[in-house]
Write a protein that binds this DNA or RNA. Structure first.
Lengths: 140, 140
DNA sequence: CTACATGCAAATCGTTTGCACTCCA
DNA sequence: TGGAGTGCAAACGATTTGCATGTAG
């Protein structure tokens, strides 16, 4: 929690719980999921507060955001440099690390387009749990 | 246009124009933009037809889809293996090629998560046109 | 105390869908 | 001709916002 205070973020019950929820798991929950879970501990919390809080944390660089899939945004508590494996069936997102990708330097071609700042990588495929599955799965 | 027929896609005036519009430029227009431009030649076309058509083309693998930024989806006429430089200020998307990325093979770590199928990469930064710009830009 | 955070409800915005009509094959 | 394609308008779902009230500091 000290992290929040250090970022000059005013401390509230709902913020603490949202923070705890997102950082307390390796999952990459969407706002709705965070909401549902935090609600168990803070029944009065509202979905828009969760959104506002998540956006605040992101602006402060406390969490990241995943999602090239287009649909709902997923949030990411891992602020270390890493990449994602995304299951195209159930949407599950898993972190992974790669020296090869970390070492990647944009080609001259890119440097001529502008000023590169970060690299976003998604390895897409089908996760173990979904392999052999026919229907969707909609798992989290 | 033969491509469309080859994919068993029933040919219509609006489909031909949408296809021409998307593939006729190196840009990565969003549905709204395609709509606005095609409308000049086919005044009666509707936005939802553009969406339906774009989705159809994508399902057929005729075009791709870009956008980890979250907001509106951009479509991509380049079906060759390539990657994107995305301007965080104006949203402009530019293709680039990279042997290094093409050679990338997911680490064991990833292969244990599931079955990788494709790689999505975005180099994010500020494009030349936006460098030195303070306000947004909202360019396309 | 006072500015900022919250809950509620309504508003946005991109995208999709139901339906009746038109048109390609 | 018949089923697929289109336009229109309404539906949708995720996310945001205005406002009055509550609360951290």
């Amino acid at each position: 929690m000290a992290v929040l205070r250090r970022h000059g973020i005013r401390m509230t019950h709902q913020r603490m719980e949202v923070y705890r929820e997102v950082t307390g798991t390796g999952e990459h929950p969407d706002a709705e999921t965070v909401y549902r879970r935090v609600k168990r501990r803070v029944p009065a919390i509202s979905l828009d507060t969760v959104y506002r809080t998540l956006n605040l944390f992101e602006r402060q660089g406390l969490i990241g955001r995943v999602g090239a899939t287009g649909d709902r945004t997923r949030f990411d508590a891992n602020v270390k440099r890493h990449h994602h494996f995304v299951c195209m069936r159930c949407g599950r997102v898993t972190d992974f690390y790669s020296e090869a990708l970390d070492a990647f330097s944009p080609p001259r071609e890119v440097r001529e387009m502008g000023h590169p700042q970060s690299l976003y990588v998604e390895v897409r495929g089908i996760c173990k749990a979904c392999t052999g599955t026919e229907g969707d799965g909609k798992a989290g």
